[in-house]
Design a protein around this nucleic acid. Sequence first.
RNA 1: GGGCCGGUAGCUCAAUGGUAGAGCACUGCCCUUUUAAGGCAGGGGUUCUGGGUUCGAGUCCCAGCCGGCUCACCA
Length: 531
Amino acid sequence: MACPERARIFRDGQGSAVSTIERQELTDQRRKKLRAITELGFEPYPRTYHCTHTIPQVLAEYSLRPAEELERDRPRVRVAGRVMTMRPHGKAGFAHLAGGGQRLQVYVRLDAVGERHFELYKLLDLGDLIGVEGYMFRTRTGELTVHAEQLQFLAKALLPLPEKWHGLTDVETRYRQRYLDLMVNPEVRQIFERRAKLVEAIRQFLNAEGFLEVETPMMQPLAGGAMARPFVTHHNALDMDLYLRVAPELYLKRLIVGGFERVYEINRNFRNEGISTQHNPEFTMLEFYQAYADYEDMMRLSEQLLRHVAQKVLGGLEFDWAGHRISLAKFERLTMREAIVKFWPPEAGRGPTLADLAEPKNVFPWIDVYNSWAAAASGSQTLTLDRGTAPGAAVQALFEVLAERHLIQPIFITEFPLEVSPLSKQKPDDPNFVERFELYIGGMEIANAFSELNDPAEQRDRFEYQQMLREKGDLAAHSIDEDYIRALSYGMPPTGGEGIGIDRLTMLLTDSRSIRDVILFPLLRPQKSAD
RNA sequence: GGGCCGGUAGCUCAAUGGUAGAGCACUGCCCUUUUAAGGCAGGGGUUCUGGGUUCGAGUCCCAGCCGGCUCACCA
C-alpha cells in the first residue's frame, strides 16, 4: 500500500497551509483504519462488486411493500453506495448508503454478519464506499432497510465529508470541488440531471422534425458567426494560429449550401469576454438551421421546441424563476422600437413615439433625454456610447438599458438594426432593419435568430463594414470570411437560423440565478500552489 | 477592469482591541430497530498572506491573494 509517511504541503489560494492527502490528522486516522480493514482480510481497493440492484431500484421495488410481506419473503439484494450516516449501537448499527442520488438504510448486527464483518462496520468512516448483501425489511419506525448479512469494503474516503446537516455552502469550494457538492447537496445533482434531460428533449424534438445533428470545427482559422472576442491558440505542426469558435454559425450554413437542409449542433462556444452570473467563457449553444424558412418560421419552431422541452423536463409549461411565475403558454412579440416606446420610464418625461424612431439616427436625442433623467434618478444607469457609435447600435443599446429587465414572460423582440446584424437579411420595406429576433425570458436573452442573409454581394458589404469597425478597434467585430462568401456564391436557399443558449435555458428550468450553478465546472481563477 | 461585501478547526458558524469558542465531523469507553440516535471523556487553530499602529490585533490601518454580488463588455 502506498502511503508515504512524509507530508507534501501545498498552499491554497488563501495562502494557508493545506496538506493534500498526505498530512492531516483526520487523514492519518483514516489511513490507519484502511490498514486495519486490510488486516481483517478485506481488499483495500477491490476491482468490482456485482449488485443486484441500484439504490433507486431497491427503493422503487420495495418502498410500497408492507413490513409483513417483506418479513415473509425476505427478498435478497446486493447494493453498493457511499456511507453517508452511521449510528452505531454497541453490537449493532445503522448506516445510510447514497447512490444514484438516493439513500438506503442498512442495518448491521453482529449476530447477523459475524465478527469479521462487524469489525469492518466499526472501522467505516463517513464517505467510505461499501457493498452490502442481505434481505429487505422494515424497522420499527417503518423505514425500508437492508438487513445485512455480508459487507464488502469497496473504497476508503481518506478525506472527511462536509458537515452532514448544513452541507457544503461555501460557493468557491462547491465549484472547485464539484464532486463534494454533488455528494452532499442532492439538489445540485438534480440540476444536472435536469440539464441532461433538457438536452435530450431538444435532440428528440429536432430529430423528429427532420434535423440532422452535426459537428463542426471548434478550432477555426477565423472566428466568425457572432460578435465576440475569441480565444487564440496555436497549432504547432501547421505553425498556425487558430481561434476557439465563438459560434458554429458559418459552418452550419455551409452545410445548408451543401444540401443538408435541416441541421443542428449542440456544443461549446468560447468567448473571451467578461464573466458574470450570465456569462461563462465556455458555454453550450444549440444552433439550428432550416432551409426554405425565415425568421417567422423560426419563431413558431422556437415556441414548439421550448414547449416540448418544458413538457418533457417539467411536465408542464409553467415554472418559477427568481420569484416570477413564468408561463410558456404564450409568447408575446414586440419590435425593438416598440419595446423602447413601451418601456420608456414615465418619470423621464415624454418618450419617443414609433414615428420618432423611424430613422435610427433619430435615437440620439432620445438617448440624451434618457441620460439627463437617469443621471439625476438614483438607481438608473446612464448610457454611454463610444464616439462614432452607429445609429443602429445606439437603438439596440437604448433598448437593452430600458427594456431587457422587464422581459420576464416569453417575448420575441423583432426587427433589429442593420448595423448590429451582419448576417441577417434586411426587411424588404425598411433596409435599416433586419428580419431578426431575440427571445427573452426571465430578463435574459435565451435565443437569437434571423432570416439568414444569402446574397453574397450584400454579405461582402456587411463584412467590409465589420472590418472597418475592427480597424477602429472593435475586437468583437467580424473578420471577412472569404470562403463563406464563396459558399454563398454557389447559392444558399432562403434559410432561417437560430441559436439557443443551453446554459441559460437550464437556469430558467432549474430556478438557478447563476450560470455557474448549471455548469459542472465553471471557470475559476486557478488556485496557486507552492511547495 | 470599477464599486460593495466577505475569508476564523475538516464542515457550518461565534468571539467590545485583552487567555480563539460552539455544533457537526474526529478519538476512547458504554449501548442489538436508530435516523440531526444517545451518554461520558478527549484531541484538533500560521484566525487568507505580508507589512504597520498598539503594552497587547481575529478585531484597527496599508498592500496583496482568493471568492461572492454588482457595474462595464457580451449570449
